[in-house]
């Protein structure tokens, strides 16, 4: 076989692989991740040394963050319930509304190289997972399911360069949410573009994943505003940086919110 023929054959094979639908070829990627998971996990960050507080009146920063996120989630759920109550006041629903189904999954691997910020988890389509579902880690949303196989799924973290989710910030003075898009930066942070400077946004404000029909019933914390400054290119807009509420590198277990639409 001549070199030209060989090259043509190999290029044709490559083109066939490229043109095959992602739903067909993704199994190969998942097979690789499952097969070599122990080796790929080498070098993954482990938990920090345990800090013993001086007295029972103090908690660690991690515990404080966990409790704060739990409080924020409860507050968001309360606001949603209030809004729902106002709409449905006087109307008694015939059947109780079932809560979202949570699918617990072990984190097989965390990939944090280059543009990728993702988790591989050990639950898939057989457990009801599908792309777009939100993933809880600790008390906050850490990402969304991006791809599923039979017994494995890929979770795109909110900081992944390809992540784009709808988020909300509670405005206490106006008693309403500001809705915006949050884009992953490919670093440990995310950005919220296109927010007008007419809104009062402060460092430390809580950012929630916005409720989404069929996926999320009430807002859940995703992070906190780490930096707010006027956008250098668009002076009428804010340049907002968001820090995730959860350090995903230390996660060993997550829960996928598998609400049926």
């Amino acid at each position: 076989m001549s070199r030209a023929t060989l090259f043509t054959w190999l290029l044709t094979a490559g083109l066939v692989l490229l043109l095959l639908p992602q739903s067909v070829t993704k199994g190969v990627n998942f097979l690789f991740a499952r097969l070599f998971n122990p080796v790929l996990s080498v070098g993954r960050s482990t938990g920090p040394p345990i800090f013993k507080p001086a007295s029972a009146d103090f908690v660690t920063r991690a515990e404080y963050n966990r409790l704060q996120a739990a409080y924020d989630n409860l507050r968001a759920a309360l606001i949603t319930e209030h809004q729902r109550y106002e709409k449905l006041a006087g109307i008694r629903s015939s059947l109780p509304k079932p809560g979202p189904k949570l699918v617990l999954a072990d984190v097989m691997n965390v990939s944090m190289g280059g543009l990728r910020r993702e988790l591989i988890i050990n639950k898939g389509t057989t457990d009801g997972l599908k792309p777009g579902q939100y993933v809880l880690g600790g008390n906050g949303i850490v990402g969304t399911v991006s791809e599923t196989a039979q017994a494995t799924a890929r979770v795109r973290l909110i900081t992944d360069a390809g992540s784009k989710i709808k988020v909300a910030i509670w405005q206490a003075d106006k008693k309403k949410y500001i809705y915006a898009r949050m884009d992953g930066e490919g670093t440990d942070l995310a950005k919220m573009p296109f927010i007008s400077r007419e809104y009062k946004i402060r460092r430390g404000d809580t950012v929630y994943a916005a409720a989404k029909a069929g996926f999320l019933e009430s807002p859940i914390v995703v992070g906190r505003i780490a930096q707010v400054k006027p956008d250098e290119k668009e002076p009428l807009l804010w340049d907002i940086t968001v820090e995730p509420v959860q350090n995903v590198e230390l996660l060993e277990r997550v829960a996928v919110i598998a609400t049926e639409p």
Binding site: A13, G14, L17, L18, T25, K26, V28, E147
Partner: peptide, 8 residues
Amino acid sequence: TAIGPYTI
């Protein structure tokens, strides 16, 4: 994450 792009 995808098969084909880097093969080509």
